[in-house]
């Protein structure tokens, strides 16, 4: 695999909180312009891995390489500036700020005021529902609207890599497909997406490359469709039908 096609390379990551180690010796390579899915049961360390990429956990050992640069020691706000954006699973909008202000905060590090304005309009095109709620406080939005705002906010920083932590976990079933189709549009724009999902089948269907985590380790890897048809995977994680 050539270095140019790698967006983020996590090498031997061991991380956790305080003294507790949650994930151990994780090696995951994220290819540019693709969707990489990380699936696994509850508590397997998927979210911790995403947080680690963003520097929100304690890194005990290992390196995170982004475009050939070691970013392991960079504070989270700087990681945003080098083009990584993150949508946490919960608490992913600023509830007391309006929808518009949330979007502005997404573009906080950007200096190109005029272009930010144009991008906000562009984002409204992708998520028309936000247009109607521009002046409303984010805390008053519904689960699905909130999730869309969270993704929109993350996109405002013009990221090259977008980290999504269970984007459909708290939304109504009929909104799920809507959000997934938006993710497709995002990738089509050339943004690399890392998608963490508990619902393995859904994620693996849309992804290019899939990683399966269990109790803090990567236990399987491979292209999404192949994992879906893998006997061992089905038995362990999807259950026989």
């Amino acid at each position: 695999m050539s270095g140019d096609s790698v967006a983020i390379d996590a090498r031997g990551i061991t991380a956790g909180y305080g003294k507790a180690i949650i994930i151990e010796d994780i090696n995951i390579t994220i290819e540019k312009g693709k969707i990489t899915a990380i699936v696994g049961p509850n508590g397997s360390g998927k979210s911790t891995f995403l947080k680690t990429i963003f520097g929100l956990t304690r890194l005990f050992s290992g390196q995170i390489i982004c475009d050939g640069r070691d970013i392991s020691r960079l504070p989270p706000e700087e990681r945003n500036r080098i083009g990584i954006s993150y949508v946490p699973q919960v608490d992913n909008v600023f509830p007391s700020l309006t929808v518009m202000e949330n979007l502005e905060m997404g573009a906080y590090a950007r200096r190109d005021k005029q272009e930010v304005k144009r991008d906000i309009e562009g984002i409204m095109g992708i998520f028309p529902i936000l247009m109607e709620r521009v002046k409303q406080k984010a805390g008053t939005l519904s689960g699905g609207e909130r999730q869309m705002l969270a993704i929109a906010r993350a996109l405002m920083s013009k990221p090259r890599v977008l980290l999504l932590d269970e984007p459909v976990a708290a939304v109504a079933p009929k909104v799920v497909s809507k959000i997934f189709s938006r993710i497709g549009e995002i990738v089509a724009r050339g943004i690399t997406v890392i998608l963490v999902e508990q619902h393995a089948r859904r994620a693996l269907e849309v992804c290019d490359m899939g990683y399966v985590m269990s109790s803090g380790h990567v236990v399987m890897r491979g292209p999404g469709r192949r994992l879906l048809s893998d006997e061992k995977f089905i038995e362990a994680f999807l259950g026989r039908r």
Partner: peptide, 17 residues
Amino acid sequence: KALRAMADNEDLARVSG
């Protein structure tokens, strides 16, 4: 606005740059 954002959710403020 960033100060208000920080008061709302500090981690999210950080990841927003």
